[in-house]
Nucleic acid binder design. Structure first.
Lengths: 241, 241
DNA sequence: CCATATTGTCGCACTGTGAGACAATAATAA
DNA sequence: TTATTATTGTCTCACAGTGCGACAATATGG
């Protein structure tokens, strides 16, 4: 294996992605583990010399999740001079059998543009990249220790997600096409991190005009069967990518 | 004069700043004009090799406005591969008597991190930088044609400012310490671009608990003198810089 | 047939807001 | 001095939205 060359990528510039999914009753994030080091990090990558920044992020997500056309949104660029640790990066490279000179571009400072993505957790086929052992889901409140400033990146992603929950049709991208009101409420509660009142939530959602009610579901549970809903105008990609 | 060296700055990375001020009844933006070219652009700059990204932006703003401790907020990173025009950059450099080789770092692609700033328009002492003829205020609805993708940057800055108007105490930074309710309403209207109802606005502002009423002002105008107000907890720098 | 858990809906009180009305008042004109 | 004028501060009314609880409807299991 060869280390990526500075002839192919823009030096000093990287991206990191916070990929949200919803499973069971929890909001989850994709985390990778680097070979041999026991270190965890957000999935990220570099930008090709003549590649659009947004395209680079979509490329990286497609390689790891096999998903195209993902809801993706840039939220902050992390540019502290000391956010990067060359010694840790070197350890990751040597653990993969790559030895690079001390002045190699991968051991220098990086500014990282951070994105968050929302995906239907059931549609993903996870695929580790070359440098990592595994890629898997972690509860947002049960993350392993992360490299560099990745914990701060996750916090800020969550913060942005919460702020956008009221204005953007986010849940379309976290739920299957048909869902119950209960499921929708669980997604809201998982994102906001607080319980919501059932009847008020239901009333507000119905009044929004965004939901279309479908036939009843045969739950097989010992209670009244809930309606199924779908979003009337499911938005896959937001206006502002 | 010497062209800035790639030994001092991170290549391929720049920042641009949208500096808002409020004068009269209009929202205004700082625009620079490059020497000899008749080209207008947002004030921007480069990031030192070991300089924090945020510090680089503050440094550039201080050089041009003589203001320290500015309300500053990053809002988007523009990363299209074709957003930059090497021929226009070369023309700017040659107009300043700088000739650089074709493979110079300044003629290569740039990714730009964009910030907006809010300042009290009356406190500024404008100071053109080395490459530019002038720096001055323009109405947001009367901008000259701008270089590169700077028009898009301005639009997105305005969009972000509007979204943050409800959640953040923005107007502290656009008004003097003491102001009338009428002035505050004018700022809101200038940012939102739409008229607001006077009594509802007044009621809402008073109910927010953010304003402290002071003594009456001697306006010299032929009508009832308005109260003066100040913000109870003026925030200079936001939590998220 | 009854108990149980959950769903769909309604009512009530409270808050916030758009819209208009009206008195108070500082300067100016008569 | 008094009337006029423009603007300010406040009030009222109607209406929409929300927190919160209550209650009937219903699918399953005993």
């Amino acid at each position: 294996m060869q280390a990526p060359s500075s002839a192919d990528f823009l030096p000093h510039l990287a991206y990191d992605s916070v990929v949200f999914g919803f499973a069971g009753e929890k909001l989850k994030i994709l985390i990778i583990e680097y070979h041999e080091t026991g270190w965890f990090a957000l999935p990220g990558g570099f930008v090709g010399r003549s590649e659009h920044l947004n395209d680079a992020v979509r490329r990286g997500l497609k390689e790891r999740t096999a998903l195209d056309n993902i809801y993706l949104r840039q939220f902050y660029t992390f540019g502290r001079a000391d956010r990067f640790s060359p010694t840790q990066m070197e350890a990751i490279l040597t653990a993969n059998g790559l030895s690079v000179p001390q002045d190699h571009w991968l051991l220098d400072r990086f500014v990282s543009v951070a994105y968050y993505a929302l995906i239907d957790h059931s549609k993903v086929e996870l695929q580790p990249d070359a440098l990592s052992d595994s890629i898997s889901w972690y509860d947002v409140d049960g993350l392993p220790p992360l490299l560099f400033d990745h914990v701060e990146i996750v916090f800020r992603a969550l913060d942005t997600l919460r702020q956008n929950l009221a204005t953007t049709l986010i849940c379309t991208n976290l739920l299957p096409a048909l869902f119950t009101m209960k499921q929708l409420q669980l997604v809201y509660e998982a994102i906001l991190g607080e319980p919501l009142h059932r009847s008020s939530f239901q009333r507000k959602m119905l009044a929004s005009g965004l939901l279309e009610r479908r036939e009843k579901q045969m739950t097989g549970a010992a209670h009244k069967a809930p309606f199924l809903y779908r979003f009337v105008n499911p938005v896959v990609s937001p206006a502002r990518s």
